[in-house]
Nucleic acid binder design. Structure first.
Lengths: 286, 286
DNA sequence: ACAAAAGTGTTTGGGATACACCCATGC
DNA sequence: GCATGGGTGTATCCCAAACACTTTTGT
């Protein structure tokens, strides 16, 4: 396999893919990064990704690279944008088709060109290779926008989750604080949550009374772009008073609540969501 | 200029750009298409676009191609997505970075590889080359989504416009009908419209009492993605009763109102829009 | 048993919706 | 002067926001 094998009449840029994978551990939003094992930017952190082959689409490419470099087997990704800065890669002209994705906070490991892979808190990202810090900012904007129209967040949670976890997730993504009781009501009245009874729950850990959980699967991809053309407003924010809970004495430190969680568990109710979509009167607004 | 000049160690796809340009003539939504003058798909209609050069970004490329092929000099475009189907071009592997844009309904003419260029009503699109019908559907979804967060539509109108024109534009894009009076109120109370007095108006044609108009310029690009991260909800739809106007006897045929238009003229109030953005309490919902 | 957090109310005020009237223009 | 469409006001109703109390869980 010598060099200089592929020739074209006109110059072609190389085409790569990158993916911003968001995760959530119940407390804060995280991003999956790999430590580059090869130059350029060897030793620096970057998003998983790699060069596209001629027999795969960009989507197939990034899913393959994700598996190779981090062990993560995702199925649902969403295009974020394509970055075509002329000098974004020192080797040659490389354009990057960037995706983003939501993942439960699972184990990852380095592999292939990545010497290491780990989750980084969104507030503590190291310096990134290429133009990846710019891409990350774009991804943050995007997820905050998408969450208004789609039950985006559920992809970040385990199948069963408490209302508190769901609320913290929304607060993490949007960067605002909701009234616990109103959040509870709003979420329930959307009809997209399914309360899990104790016996239903397969992964029941602890001895709570009841549990609620969610179905999701690849809901994210299904509704990435709404199919009737008119997107549903899933959740809008209006920056209310953002007060602390009334009775809460004061708790300005970072929120606690470790995995030893309390409360009902919920599932995402895919059927309920589809039903709401049909009727067209689906709206959640904070 | 012989063939086979550029060689690479690994195969590279060709990278092209395409742009879905929306226009509005006061009655219906249109799309700018070119008739292809060269193979493949010679004689068929397609979006303006072309191959990216090595010294230009995708954005620069599509703006150049737009000018070459249609004479249109736009400044504000927005990425729609990148299409990477393996056989979407019969010549070789070509991926397309697609954009969309909003343009006042101006004169266009064919040029370069385009034998012809014209506006097509959104409801009467000819068969399109490549995967451009798919791209068009994606663009429609996208504009309908974006209109909720940004004053997107104004880019499609002349600098000064009547409230009726604005309403028809929104109705065209969203595909629903609004109550004239409520639309009027909603739009005014957003604070993004500026009523133009008769004397203010530079392009005052007719002898109406007053006029309102808009400032816009390249507002579209400015707020394509909100910069504080949290997007403002510009306009949400909730599919109300969609009744005909009460006193209107019945008018189920297509809406009339030729350019000989009546009523106050408005401008987009950029300062007002920025102010609303600052305060964060900006919301328009139908 | 105590603290902390979860579950579930009620009230209220603002805004979206529905609806009517007057006026201006044009044939 | 009659028809068409534009400008503006009002009442209602719904829902989001604000707020409090009880129950459950963990130690």
């Amino acid at each position: 396999m010598s060099t200089e094998q592929y020739t074209y009449q006109y110059p072609h840029p190389a085409v790569a893919t990158d993916c911003v994978v968001f995760g959530f551990d119940g407390r804060e939003l995280k991003v999956l990064l790999i430590e580059r094992g090869i130059d350029p930017f060897k030793g620096m952190w970057a998003f998983p990704g790699g060069f596209m082959r001629m027999d795969e689409t960009a989507e197939e490419c990034i899913l393959r690279e994700l598996k190779e470099e981090t062990g993560l087997q995702l199925t649902t990704i969403k295009q974020l944008g394509t970055f075509t800065g002329i000098n974004r890669d020192p080797r040659e002209r490389v354009i990057s088709i960037a995706f983003y994705s939501l993942s439960p906070d699972t184990e990852v490991h380095g592999g292939d060109d990545a010497t290491n892979a780990r989750w980084w808190p969104i507030d503590d990202i190291p310096q990134l290779a290429f133009d990846h810090d710019y891409i990350l900012r774009q991804a943050m904007k995007r997820i905050r926008q998408d969450i208004h129209f789609e039950p985006v967040g559920f992809g970040l949670l385990r199948e069963e989750f408490t209302m508190a976890e769901l609320q913290r997730l929304y607060e993490s993504i949007l960067g605002i604080h909701f009234d616990r009781r109103n959040f509870y009501k709003k979420m329930l009245q959307t009809g997209i949550l399914h309360e899990v009874s104790e016996t239903d729950s397969p992964s029941y850990y602890g001895k709570r009374r009841e549990m609620v959980s969610m179905d999701i699967d690849n809901l994210f991809a299904d509704h990435a772009a709404t199919d009737n053309g008119i997107p549903r407003l899933f959740m809008a924010q209006s920056l209310p008073d953002c007060d602390m809970d009334d009775e809460t004495p004061s708790l300005h430190s970072s929120p606690r609540q470790q995995p030893g969680r309390k409360g009902k568990l919920f599932r995402f109710d895919k059927e309920g969501y589809d039903r709401m979509k049909e009727e067209g009167n689906f709206r959640l607004e904070f």
